[in-house]
């Protein structure tokens, strides 16, 4: 479980996050949703320590990450896997070397063991045999899956995915969502997914945090998000004509 307590963050006087309190639960896919520019990525980067919080605390299973020294933090970071919004694969390394990188850096595995782990991770994201390609030779959807493979290489306890299916077609998105859901359950990880895609919310949302204007505006599960009357949620969830249609059908059914 990751606890976020009273987190505040501003950049050059502009308040981006104000007083965020939330718990991300173990074994579940926790979602952070909200419109663009509302502070979702900043919150994720604050949690993992890429940005220092101005106030408040982050606890990883009770361990106070915020007060830790660099060295202690890097030990927790070895338990974190992250898929970045722009994937951030190392472009000078092949697919295989990307996934192997954390293994060579932090484990004492032999070459053979590492190779096995790489093949396993690639197989897990349905990319067996693509070991020798360079990131630039892979499609957007493949890159995201390679990013996930790299993120899970070290068997992380905590997995962060920043917009794992932005820029992907709906079908590929569903594959990625399903993948995230499955590995979370399989390894009992605490997974945090940032998204603004309603499809994903319905597919995988178990514990949802809605961020608006840098505040925790609403939280709940995917069933309650469809029935809430919170106006900002409504305008977010039912932004498209398609979703509006669904809402009216649902309401008809209920009455």
């Amino acid at each position: 479980m990751i606890e976020v307590k009273h987190v505040m963050k501003s950049f050059n006087g502009q308040q981006v996050l104000s007083d965020i309190n939330h718990q991300f639960e173990t074994g579940k896919v926790n979602l952070i949703i909200g419109q663009s520019g509302q502070g979702k990525s900043v919150l994720a980067k604050c949690i993992v320590g890429l940005y220092e919080v101005d106030e408040g605390q982050i606890l990883f299973d009770g361990r106070n990450f915020t007060d830790m020294e660099r060295f202690e933090r890097s030990q927790i970071r070895e338990e974190i896997g992250m898929l970045f919004q722009g994937v951030a694969l190392f472009d000078s390394l092949t697919v295989e070397q990307n996934i192997m990188f954390p293994l060579t850096m932090f484990t004492n595995m032999t070459k053979g063991e590492m190779q096995k782990r790489v093949d396993f991770c690639l197989d897990r994201v349905n990319l067996s045999g693509r070991n020798k390609l360079f990131p630039a030779e892979c499609s957007g959807g493949m890159q995201k899956r390679i990013g996930i493979a790299r993120a899970i290489a070290m068997n992380p306890k905590y997995l962060f995915c920043d917009e794992p299916n932005s820029g992907l077609d709906p079908k590929t998105s569903i594959v990625i969502d399903g993948l995230i859901k499955d590995i979370t359950a399989e390894y009992n990880m605490t997974t945090v997914v940032i998204t603004h895609d309603m499809n994903s919310v319905i597919e995988i949302g178990q514990n949802i945090l809605f961020i608006h204007q840098g505040k925790k505006w609403w939280s709940g599960d995917k069933d309650s998000i469809l029935t809430t009357d919170n106006p900002e949620i409504l305008s977010f969830v039912y932004a498209s004509e398609f979703m509006k249609e669904i809402r009216s059908i649902m309401q008809e059914k209920r009455t």
Binding site: S74, R77, M82, A88, M105
Partner: peptide, 14 residues
Amino acid sequence: VTEQIDALEIMGVN
């Protein structure tokens, strides 16, 4: 700018 440095830091690499 492509967050590759963030990716290193997040793994715990200096």
